[in-house]
Simulated scan of single mutants.
Amino acid sequence: MTNQYDLLLVDDDPDLRSLLKQYLEKHGHQVATLSDASQLDRRLARQRPDLLILDLMLPGESGLQVCQRLKLADEDLPILMLTARGDEIDRIIGLEMGADDYLGKPFNPRELLARIQAILRRRKLRGPAGAPDPDGGVVVFGDCQLDLATRRLQRAGQTLPLTSGEFSLLAVLVRYPNRPLSRERLIELSRGREAEAFERSMDVQISRLRKLIEPNPGQPSLIQTVWGFGYVFVPDGKAR
Rank of each mutant, 00 (worst) to 15 (best):
G63P: 02
Q47P: 00
L58M: 12
L64C: 04
L52D: 08
L54N: 00
M57R: 09
D50N: 15
L54D: 03
E61P: 01
G63M: 04
Q65G: 03
P59V: 08
R69E: 03
I53T: 10
L64S: 02
E61S: 07
L54Y: 02
L51D: 00
P49V: 11
D76P: 11
G60T: 10
R69G: 03
E61T: 14
E61G: 00
L52H: 13
G60L: 08
D50P: 03
Q47T: 12
M57Y: 05
L77N: 01
M57C: 05
D55P: 12
L70P: 00
L72F: 10
L70A: 03
L54Q: 04
P49Y: 11
L51A: 11
R48L: 13
L72K: 11
Q68I: 04
E75Q: 12
L70V: 02
G60Q: 13
R48S: 12
P49T: 08
L52Y: 13
L40F: 01
P59E: 12
K71T: 03
L80M: 03
A45E: 15
V66I: 02
E61F: 05
P78C: 07
R48H: 12
I53L: 14
D76V: 04
D76T: 12
I53M: 13
A45N: 14
L44S: 08
R46Y: 04
Q65R: 13
P49F: 09
D76I: 02
L58N: 08
S62I: 04
A73T: 10
Q65W: 02
D55C: 06
V66D: 04
M81L: 06
D55Q: 05
D50Y: 08
D76W: 10
D50S: 09
P78V: 07
R43Y: 11
V66F: 03
I53P: 09
L64D: 01
Q68V: 01
P78M: 08
D41H: 09
E75V: 05
G60A: 05
Q68F: 10
P59T: 12
A73P: 15
L52C: 08
L70R: 09
Q47F: 06
Q68W: 07
D41Q: 14
P59N: 07
L44F: 02
L64F: 01
L72Q: 14
R69D: 00
R42P: 04
L80P: 07
D76N: 14
P78A: 06
L40M: 07
L64H: 08
G63L: 00
A45G: 15
P49R: 09
R48E: 11
R42L: 12
L40W: 07
K71L: 00
R42H: 15
M57P: 15
E61K: 15
D76K: 10
I79E: 01
D76C: 01
L56T: 14
D76A: 10
G63W: 01
D74E: 13
L54I: 02
I79L: 09
L64I: 03
C67E: 04
R43D: 14
L52I: 12
P49Q: 14
R46A: 14
R43F: 11
R43A: 13
E61C: 04
L56Q: 15
D41P: 09
D76Y: 03
L80V: 14
Q65C: 02
L56M: 11
L72T: 05
D74Y: 07
Q65F: 00
M57A: 07
